[in-house]
Design a protein around this nucleic acid. Sequence first.
RNA 1: GUGGCCGUAGUUCAACGGUAGAGCCCCAGAUUGUGAUUCUGGUUGUUGCGGGUUCGAGUCCCGUCGGUCACCCCA
Length: 427
Amino acid sequence: MATFQTVKGFRDFYPEDCVLRNYIFDVWRRVARRYALSEYEAPIVEFTDLYRKKSGDEITGQLFCFEDKKGREISLRPEVTPSLARMATARQRHYGKPMKWFQIGSCFRYEEPQKGRTREFNQFNADIIGDAAASADAELIALAIDVMLEFGMSKEDFVIRLSDRRLWTHFLEEIHIGVEKTPAFLQIIDRMEKVPESVTADKLQALGITLDQVKAFMSSASESHPVFAPLQENLSARGLWTYVKVDPGIVRGLAYYTGTVFEVFDLKHGLRAVAGGGRYDNLCGLLGGNDLPCTGFAMGDVVLGEMLKQTPHAQMAITDFMLKSFALDAYIIVADESVRHHALASVQALRSAGVRTDYGFNPQKVGKQFQAAEDKKARYAVLFGSEYPQVEVKDLTARTQKPMKADELSGFILEQIQRPALGPLIA
RNA sequence: GUGGCCGUAGUUCAACGGUAGAGCCCCAGAUUGUGAUUCUGGUUGUUGCGGGUUCGAGUCCCGUCGGUCACCCCA
């Protein structure tokens, strides 16, 4: 029994977990590059003020914050967007617009762990900086859809819920409600589908708004509302509008979104949002730079992982990736210890040639060594015995065996592993 | 920050307040140069941690840490 436990909400990644993580990163990175995004990275810690500026003092309750040895207030990053805004502001004249950037890395939030939520998690961030047009928003929504498709999800598994903050700011203007009430109002809208109507009505009443006003507005803000027209036109042209459902109730948490907001929503398992994002044109200015139009979204690995586990088609792709990750091309069997040095020479030669090769460090019975080759999912077992320099090469999937010279090994195996395996193993 | 449930071997789980166990895994042998199956034998524990009640605590009580689920929140 281990004496130490992990710090609350943090995860160990054993090899099989690490493969899943790598698979997720792989898909994120692959699709992002397909969209011509450039990868960047930011520090894992920032001054706590960076997050206060963006979200207000109350946010520190959810931050992993501490003082460094000189008493400076530091936080583990709870998200990457503020760092991105800081970086973009600092070199805004250096990069041509629009800047299309993505990032993959861990973030930290000091909250109670529960389903789909840990204190440390990995996030994929995709952002377009310096383009205020809806076509930039559309590009990112398309990217989000393609990421989900790449994971093996289909239209039955997820939907993009789309809204626009401007709907609500116009609404509030029309009914003459002050701007200062916007955050409180948006939070009520955000909670609407979860709390009883009477509660919503009471909360709205406190702001001087009636539930009927809100309901009437929501039914008028349909897909045909002009604010969605550019997005609809753009995504329809790509054949992707079918993945989108307009839902004015989506407002996405805190107050800094200024236009388009959307989330990737799981349709089958009642999970929280897999990804979320939108346009935030004021953030750079808020952090002290010039205003830069920005739009972006983030996708976390925790809810996504839950969804992948529960979606059979996605699970198959993961299994395939795991087999490929762990599989060996060759396993060297030493049947006669007097030729071990020759076996080691061949191991080295195979590895230099790019063949994934393993062998047992210590003398062992031949049967055990074959079993080890099998357990390690090797495509070929190569037996080194007293006949050296002749060796036996056995195809472990086809169960066929043939002799050859040791110096022919690399060439033979390299040529063979270009072809698909005959048996059930995926090499 | 709040609350429910949970914490026993590597793992999945048993054990009325009375000697801590089983399956699987792992190791060895049957089988000294070929993967399966089977059989035989074997290793494995501060019962998360710390207190308390009791003649006696894995079991009951308190605290704490971790897991899990929900609330809060969700950038």
